[in-house]
Write a protein that binds this DNA or RNA. Structure first.
Lengths: 133, 133
DNA sequence: CGGTATCCTAGCTGATACTG
DNA sequence: CAGTATCAGCTAGGATACCG
């Protein structure tokens, strides 16, 4: 998706963009939500809860999130294998931010999007007129 | 990317996911950042600032953000055409959240990612051992 | 200037099958 | 059970060309 070459950024926004790139992918948010509501969730349990996700993608997403330091993998050396995933402290803080984001979405969601011809578009027209006169 | 069918979500997370889907795309964040640092930016100006973005994608992203009620488009009926983009009030509130996200990334970024063999992975090993005994 | 139309490619995503 | 390997489809993103 993104490639590094042409995206010159002055500040260390790059770090944000990197994280953003992971979190922005499909399922990431839902995985975090699930782990937030129930710690120590197993792979199969996650897959069942997030119905529709393939083991391929789930494994991929879990790996990325682990590398970001957002989740922790606990391996039980048993037969059959048992692995549990849970959130890190870092993720708990992220959770707070995500909650505020959720509130933000909820707050405005009802006002906009109600009409297909969006309020924003209407505003565009108004602004056009204002500037014209 | 996402398709609606198999992604059953209980709460109105769907609204968050929708927004997330837009914001998570490439350039969205940088566009917002730019508009935050300078209101009333023109199309060409944006394109120059975000060096590397194509007009195709920029137009697409701006449209999506406008539909989300995050930016506003002001059209000046002149020849040659002049269009300015700026943030809505909704976006200003989003900015606060994004800033806290930026802080979150910055806070943890230094601690993790320093060593290639990530702290998280180390922790995995420790946890494995703990549970083993 | 501020886009749209078109085409092309890379990579995400998912289905299926297989393994320690 | 918890993944990997492999293959296939789709879509996001980018290059180019063109238009009002």
């Amino acid at each position: 998706m993104y490639d590094e070459k042409s995206t010159k950024v002055e500040c260390d926004c790059q770090a944000v963009l990197d994280t953003w790139k992971i979190l922005g992918k499909r399922w990431s948010l839902l995985i975090l939500k699930r782990l937030h509501s129930k710690e120590n969730t197993r792979f199969g349990e996650l897959q069942r809860t997030l119905s529709g996700i393939s083991s391929t993608v789930l494994a991929d997403r879990l790996l990325e999130l682990e590398r970001e330091g957002i989740i922790i993998k606990i391996i039980f050396p048993e037969i059959p294998p048992k692995v549990e995933y849970s959130l890190t402290v870092r993720a708990e803080e992220l959770g707070i931010i995500l909650t505020s984001l959720e509130n933000w979405v909820g707050k405005w969601n009802s006002k906009i999007k109600t009409s297909p011809g969006t309020q924003a578009h209407l505003q565009t027209q108004i602004n056009t007129l204002k500037k014209t006169k």
